[in-house]
Computed example of a mutant assay.
Amino acid sequence: MDNAQYVGLSRQMVLRRQMDIVANNIANADTNGFKVESLMTKEVPGPPAVTAGGPAPVKFVGADAVARDFGQGGLRRTDSPLDVAIDGQGFFKITTKAGDRYTRDGHFRTDDTGRVTTQGGDVVSDDGGGEITIDPAKTGQLTIAPDGTVSQGTERIGKVGVFKFDSLSALQKTGSNQYQNPSNQQATAVTDVKVRQGMLEGSNVNPILEITRMIEVSRAYEQTTQMMSAEADLSRSSISRLGRVQ
């Protein structure tokens, strides 16, 4: 296999990865707080398959990293008292069996003990890292102020914690629309953010743009396949002619 075939294969591998990411974006277009992703590529130098007269090194195509756009998604009203959206930067902090996680999905509920949790049962942290517990025996209206203060009737019972990072690159996706912080960077409480009760932040995916990208990736894959096929035909033709000359 010559250099063109190797380069073409490296390009196809990257395009398949791009297609997976675009498809995942489209699938999460209606996921609360989901952030659109894109694949970063790079040139990967490598030794040529054939050294005689060929350039060295050959530049292959490689996947570099997945970039994530943390831009604000649109807010939609639900009027559910435990639905909250962050209007601005920051993340809700939740406690899971695997440790602390961060999310923009504010579709919360209460468990059997009255603790505020995610739909998956992970406990939502207050601004100090503790729990927020609602007393089901009390009949006071549950309100969440723009600063995150949670009240049941006239009694203050906690404050929804919103945390931020100096560099969002510290966050690593873990699934279930959650992120972990494997770095040494510390999350700090946000004081100038607005928390909107009865609302949810939607995905910041633009479906039309993602479908356009999917078409572009599909066409690029087809073009690469055609190039590799033409290169293979040329090689076979050259070998056939060489055989007749001998």
Rank of each mutant, 00 (worst) to 15 (best):
Q5Y: 14
I208F: 08
V44Y: 15
A170H: 06
G74Y: 00
E210Y: 03
A49M: 15
G161T: 00
T191G: 13
S229R: 14
V7P: 06
Q226V: 14
R101E: 12
G198K: 02
D127L: 12
D122Q: 12
G53M: 03
F108V: 00
G140H: 04
I208V: 15
N206K: 09
G158Y: 04
D20P: 02
R219V: 04
A65G: 06
V66R: 07
K35S: 10
G62Q: 11
I144E: 06
G128C: 08
Q197K: 04
M1V: 11
Q119W: 05
G202N: 05
V123P: 04
E37P: 01
N24S: 03
P45Q: 08
D69V: 02
I94L: 10
K173A: 13
N3D: 15
S238F: 10
Q178N: 11
Q72K: 04
D135C: 14
K194S: 12
G148E: 02
R244W: 12
Q12D: 01
S183N: 02
G140Q: 08
Q119E: 15
N25T: 02
L200Q: 01
G71W: 06
D233N: 14
D122I: 01
G140Y: 09
G71H: 08
V36C: 04
T103N: 12
M214D: 03
S80R: 11
A23M: 09
T118P: 09
G158N: 05
P47K: 10
D127V: 13
Q180C: 04
V44M: 15
Q180R: 09
R77L: 14
R77F: 12
D87V: 09
D20H: 04
T133Q: 15
L171K: 07
T139V: 13
G202F: 07
D105R: 06
S169L: 11
I157N: 01
Y179S: 02
N206C: 02
V84M: 12
R17V: 04
I86D: 03
V245F: 12
D30W: 07
S125T: 02
I144S: 03
L168S: 05
I211Q: 04
Q223Y: 14
E131C: 08
G120K: 11
D105A: 14
Q12H: 02
E210S: 06
G202A: 08
S183I: 03
Q178A: 13
G73I: 00
V162G: 14
G8N: 02
G130S: 15
Y6C: 09
G198Y: 09
V50I: 12
D122N: 11
D192W: 10
I144D: 03
S240I: 07
D147Y: 11
P207C: 12
G74H: 00
T212G: 13
V61G: 02
F70Q: 09
V61R: 05
D30Y: 11
A65P: 06
F70S: 03
Q186T: 08
S38V: 07
A230R: 15
T224L: 06
S167Q: 15
G54A: 13
G120W: 11
G153T: 05
I215Q: 10
D233L: 04
K173W: 05
H107W: 13
P146G: 08
D79H: 15
V217W: 09
G161V: 06
V14Y: 01
N204L: 07
L209F: 11
K164S: 14
L82Q: 00
V124E: 01
V66W: 11
K35M: 07
R68Q: 15
S240F: 08
V116D: 01
L234C: 04
M13I: 10
G99T: 11
T51R: 11
S183Y: 06
